[in-house]
């Protein structure tokens, strides 16, 4: 599938998750994300378990922090009446205090909302490659997209390298815990990453990276600076409550940005091998995502949740033949 489709779906779910508080709806969205990550998993995707652990961790952290330093409101049934403590060194902070069902429920629901966001993005990352998505960015952003592709590809191996460097510390008879140990483990990893950057750059250079057929265009700089200027004017317009000039200014900025970007992209000879077709499954997933977001913003949480779940139908055509053939 097109790498952008599930990201649009995930964006819709993120927008929705930020706006609903009903635990049932949030739970349904979390399940939907997990279904997407399992059924739509692409080959070679990183493990989804990490996202699940992170999501659970976020809920746990929210709850724990609510109990420890949360602002306790006296509503709901008191579960545990902990003594409260107001430390003199941090005015306004109340440590511990009575834990109520409402407070705990709210903290958990807020945590769940964030967890749904993590799961939705994680599911999108599992179902479609962020690297491929970055590669479909416009040509003018090629350098940055490349840097981001490299970063996304290399980060997992750096995590492994940190682990290796920490294990190696034991070989020298040193402890592997504490800030000093982490700092010292980071140094060889960083050093290796820097050396690696040069190797990688050489490998890109000899394969023709950034070959251009012509010189750059003089008009790019002014166009881009003009775009930012227009954006600044537009932003102040928005804040001042003057849409009469905010909207035209922002539109002008967008137009200048597009013009600058297309001028900057001229003279690049590059082509792309993979064309990602956009078919009815992409429409289904991305459309559901867009509608979810719109319905969420419009304040229709139930409808939005239902649409988000319907978006998962885009998984079906891919799964059916596989299951039939088994």
């Amino acid at each position: 599938m097109h790498p952008a489709a599930w990201w649009v779906w995930a964006a819709g779910v993120v927008v929705l998750a930020g706006r609903i508080h009903a635990p049932q709806a949030l739970a349904a969205l979390a399940v939907a994300a997990c279904v997407l990550a399992t059924a739509g998993r692409r080959q070679g995707a990183p493990s989804f378990a990490g996202y699940v652990a992170l999501a659970l961790g976020i809920v746990a952290v929210r709850v724990v922090f609510h109990v420890l330093v949360g602002i306790k409101t006296p509503t709901g049934r008191v579960l545990v009446d902990l003594p409260s403590w107001h430390p003199a060194w941090a005015p306004g902070v109340q440590l511990l205090g009575p834990v109520t069902t409402t407070g705990l429920g709210t903290a958990a629901a807020q945590g769940l909302a964030l967890a749904v966001m993590v799961l939705a993005v994680g599911a999108a990352a599992t179902a479609s490659s962020p690297a491929r998505l970055l590669r479909s960015l416009p040509a003018a952003l090629h350098h940055l997209a490349t840097a981001a592709v490299i970063a996304v590809g290399v980060a997992p191996s750096l995590v492994a390298a940190v682990a290796a460097a920490r294990r190696a510390r034991r070989l020298r008879g040193l402890t592997t815990r504490g800030p000093r140990a982490i700092a010292h483990a980071a140094v060889p990893v960083l050093a290796d990453a820097l050396d690696r950057a040069l190797d990688l750059a050489a490998s890109m250079e000899v394969r023709g990276y950034a070959r251009r057929s012509g010189p750059g265009d003089r008009r790019v700089g002014p166009a881009l600076a003009g775009a930012v200027l227009a954006a600044a004017v537009g932003t102040y317009g928005l804040l001042a409550g003057a849409p009469a000039y905010a909207v035209p200014a922002l539109s002008l900025g967008a137009a200048l940005a597009v013009a600058g970007a297309s001028l900057a992209a001229r003279g690049q000879a590059r082509t792309r091998y993979r064309e990602d077709p956009w078919g009815y499954r992409e429409w289904c997933a991305a459309g559901a995502g867009a509608m979810t977001g719109v319905a969420g913003v419009a304040g229709l949480p139930l409808l939005a949740t239902a649409i988000a779940l319907l978006g998962l139908l885009a998984l079906l055509p891919a799964r059916l033949p596989a299951e039939v053939s088994v």
């Binding site: 070959r211 590059r270 082509t271």
Partner: peptide, 10 residues
């Protein structure tokens, strides 16, 4: 990758 940088047709 190299062919993309060289701008070869698909």
């Amino acid at each position: 990758y190299a062919m993309e940088q060289l701008g070869l047709p698909r």
